[in-house]
């Protein structure tokens, strides 16, 4: 692993984080009428429902409290201040609706969303690897063409339709799984079997629906494997009398999966994306549902906060992929990026 490559990947991660945070800051200012005017109504609503009254100065203070933006400072000071609070106070403002710091709200939800995302990635890609290699080994067979057709169907079905069909069939009709929530009512949280079974039981359908996102990988794996099957080193391995299991795993498998590895990690962006819709369908209280609720009442600080965290998780995922790729593919350490 060379240092240049390492710094380049780290630099990319920093730039992406900077760009995202700056984007959220810019968006506050791009709202019609600027941050104060656009948030005024929402703040007023919150306050009046609790029976108080406010003047403009108080609203400005509240904007500062909620959005981490001091409306009266020059923009560059606002910007520096926005960053200062994020980096040194871990503050992304305060939610209008929950009256709690955004950071606290998100921190409570992150593990649940990650749980679903990571498992659906793993399941989706494992399935696609198995299917793709089976299709490649039986290229042009009946199995291959039937599977290819099924793949077209799966690729054409949005994950939320899969979710609805699953809810209808296995949850409502058959009653095997709950239709929503993340844990059964009355189950005590903690390291006990009942709790863990309940968690898995509730997460099963969201995970299954999301894992369909990875299934398209089967087609690229099939392509990769067919390409590897035509490589000289594979023929030499056969002539060398290596065991078929070794050829299948260490030769075909490894070389066919390699090009997918970085994509696997970028896939986390897609999976997190889908959580916004899926968690609403399954009323699964993760970050996606938090964001969904935030958008309905225009809870801007919470929206910006979730966007920053969603991006940060993806940045970390891609960074891990980039940094470990060098260990998996000896050719990559020289650099060359993510092509």
């Amino acid at each position: 692993m060379n240092l240049n490559y390492l710094t380049r990947r780290l630099g990319q991660a920093v730039i992406t984080f900077w760009a995202t945070v700056t984007l959220t800051f810019a968006l506050y200012h791009m709202m019609p009428g600027g941050p104060v005017e656009s948030m005024q109504n929402i703040i007023l609503q919150q306050v009046t429902t609790s029976g108080g009254s406010v003047d403009l100065e108080q609203i400005e203070q509240m904007v500062a409290l909620y959005a981490n933006i001091q409306p009266n400072d020059p923009v560059y000071v606002q910007y520096i201040d926005y960053w200062r609070q994020l980096l040194f106070e871990f503050s992304m403002g305060q939610s209008f609706s929950h009256q709690e710091p955004v950071t606290t709200l998100i921190a409570e939800r992150v593990p649940w969303s990650m749980f679903v995302s990571v498992y659906s990635l793993v399941i989706g890609y494992t399935a696609s690897i198995l299917l793709g290699s089976a299709m490649a080994f039986k290229e042009k067979s009946r199995f291959d063409s039937i599977m290819s057709s099924i793949m077209v169907a799966l690729q054409s079905t949005p994950y939320y339709i899969v979710a609805l069909l699953l809810i209808y069939s296995v949850a409502l009709r058959l009653g095997w799984f709950p239709t929503g929530g993340r844990v059964g009512t009355g189950v005590e949280a903690g390291f006990n079997l009942e709790f863990m079974t309940s968690v898995v039981h509730h997460a099963a359908l969201p995970i299954l629906s999301t894992s369909i996102l990875g299934i398209a990988g089967a087609i690229s794996l099939r392509g990769n494997a067919i390409r590897v099957l035509g490589e000289d080193y594979l023929r030499v391995a056969e002539l060398r009398g290596l065991r078929p299991t070794r050829i299948a795993t260490e030769y075909v498998g490894r070389n066919a999966i390699l090009p997918m590895y970085t994509r696997f990690m970028i896939g986390i962006a897609g999976v997190l994306s889908s959580s916004v819709i899926l968690e609403q369908i399954f009323s699964y209280p993760g970050m996606g549902l938090l964001m969904y609720n935030a958008i309905n009442i225009r809870d801007y600080p919470l929206l910006m906060g979730t966007l920053i965290i969603f991006t940060s998780i993806t940045i970390i995922g891609i960074l891990i992929a980039d940094l470990t790729y060098g260990y998996i593919d000896p050719r990559a350490s020289g650099g060359g990026g993510t092509e």
């Binding site: 962006a269 997190l272 889908s274 964001m291 929206l303 969603f310 991006t311 993806t314």
Partner: peptide, 11 residues
């Protein structure tokens, strides 16, 4: 490519 699409669109 890194910023998750739907959350960005939602914002």
């Amino acid at each position: 490519i890194t910023i998750p699409g739907l959350p960005l669109v939602m914002v």
